[in-house]
Simulated scan of single mutants.
Amino acid sequence: MVDRIRDDWARRRPDLDTAPVAVVGRILRAARVLQEAADAQLAGAGLTRAEFDVLSQLRRHGAPLRPGDLTAGVVGSPAATTKRLHKLGAAGLVRRGADPDDARAARVSLTAAGERLVDDLLPRQLAADAELLEVFTPDQREQLAALLRSALLAWE
């Protein structure tokens, strides 16, 4: 698909260097494929990958977090985080409590049900992610991870 896009532009606008599309286009397409695969894997639990990422972040941290801290650790806006927290709260997976350091703020924590759900889903999600990455050799996975890490450190 990306090659076809570049070919189409080469015919229409041969003056343009479409080399960035070879990388950026493929990263965006790969992200979409990975997102759809994760969402399909988690659909049985009634979660999206983004919601699972919020739950996972709370589980990894092991202590209540401010909503802003959750936003910083996942993909999305503060509004998206708020929407996810409302859905997860209504499902009984997270709860909001007062922030002991700031009466105007809240902290979010996992409920026991949320913790059990993450512990149940995480091994399956990791296995599904690993299966998707089997198209690469172990060395290629390490190289790709290093390249993406370098890019993200520069961009973020």
Score class of each variant (00 low, 15 high):
Arg116Pro: 01
Arg104Met: 02
Arg104Val: 01
His86Gln: 12
Ala91Cys: 03
Ser77Ala: 11
Leu93Asn: 05
Val108Leu: 02
Leu110Glu: 05
Gly114Trp: 09
Ala80Gln: 15
Leu93Arg: 09
Ser109Lys: 04
Arg104Asp: 07
Ala113Trp: 09
Arg95Glu: 14
Ala98Gly: 04
Gly73Arg: 15
Leu88Trp: 09
Arg84Met: 10
Ala91Asp: 14
Leu88Gly: 03
Val94Cys: 04
Val74Asp: 02
Leu93Pro: 03
Leu93His: 13
Leu85Lys: 05
Pro100Val: 05
Gly114Met: 06
Ala113Phe: 10
Gly97His: 01
Thr111Trp: 09
Arg116His: 13
Val75Glu: 15
Glu115Tyr: 03
Gly73Glu: 11
Gly114Gln: 11
Asp99Gly: 01
Leu88Ser: 04
Asp102His: 01
Arg95His: 10
Arg84Phe: 12
Arg116Ser: 14
Leu110Phe: 06
Thr81Arg: 07
Lys83Tyr: 13
Thr111Pro: 05
Leu117Glu: 12
Leu88Ala: 05
Pro100Asp: 04
Ala103Gln: 03
Gly89His: 07
Leu117Val: 08
Ala91His: 11
Ala106Trp: 01
Lys83Asn: 13
Val118Asn: 08
Val74Thr: 15
Ala113Gln: 14
Ala80Lys: 13
Ala105Lys: 06
Asp102Cys: 00
Val108Thr: 11
Gly73Met: 13
Val118Ile: 06
Asp99Gln: 01
Val118Ser: 08
Val118Gly: 06
Leu110Met: 07
Gly92Lys: 10
Pro100His: 05
Arg96Ser: 06
Leu110Val: 05
Ala105Ile: 02
Thr111Lys: 07
Ala113Arg: 15
Arg96Val: 02
Thr81Tyr: 08
Arg107Thr: 08
Gly89Phe: 03
Lys87Phe: 11
Glu115Cys: 07
Asp102Pro: 00
Asp102Ala: 02
Lys87Gln: 13
